[in-house]
Amino acid sequence: MSEQNNPMLSLQEITKAFYSGTINEKIALDHLSLDLQPGDFVTVIGGNGAGKSTLLNAAAGAFPIDKGNILIDGINVTKLAEHKRAKYIGRVFQDPMTGTAANMQIEENLAIAARRGRTRTLKWSITAAERKQYRDMLAMLDLGLEDRMTAKVGLLSGGQRQALTLLMATLTQPKLLLLDEHTAALDPKTAAKVLEISDKLIEQNKLTALMVTHNMKDAIAHGNRLIMMHNGRVIFDVSGEEKRNLTVDALIEKFSQTSGEEFASDRALLSK
């Protein structure tokens, strides 16, 4: 997709500390470097406070970083405001409430997403052609949403909202898709369905994606590359054949070896 051989996402020595200069200072990202090639689907795991969400939020521009550079497809976006960077990035959040506007209709939400990266004008907010396109896309999700296009999003279940958010995130072919534990708030069956939809959309649109998860099995089963984070750094990076052959036990083993600590997340262990 990129004209030169740029990585789709390049994080160069990025550092982010919260509560700097106080006794509570927490270094969330510590000179972290990471390159994603076009089409990479990277799963991110790590204990609580390892910096996984901070990593995604830094890429998305939710806050300025202290040091380092962030390049998306060769474009330096380090100083670009969140809403401007949104042009390149699709995002799905952990909380199903976050990704959509509850008091607006399904089709209105999609229409807003379809205009990501464009100036919002005084043209009518949704066209007839779009409605038809959205209906087909919603039908693909197989959740019956295509017949409820004018229903308020607040009436949907958490899983339906996440599926809709995924559709909104991928509607304009983003250069980068950021999934921040987007199935963590869902029941296992719904989570599996939303993951299936994620896989499908990433595959169809040949997207470059970063997916944070607490579920090690999911981290192994999805994507072509896996990174493990600890104290704001990447401590384990595996792809291809080696990743396919990973097991949850091997991952936990790897974690205690590299970090010198027990894997400190009950959630991760329980989801084994």
Binding site: H83, I89, G99, I112, W124
Partner: peptide, 25 residues
């Protein structure tokens, strides 16, 4: 009902979503 108006309505409902969708809140 316009694109801009929809952006303003969305801002009142969910700012985080708006920024993620490229709206300057």
């Amino acid at each position: 009902g316009t694109e801009l108006g929809a952006g303003i309505r969305a801002t009142g409902i969910n700012e985080k979503m708006c920024r993620a969708q490229g709206i300057n809140t």
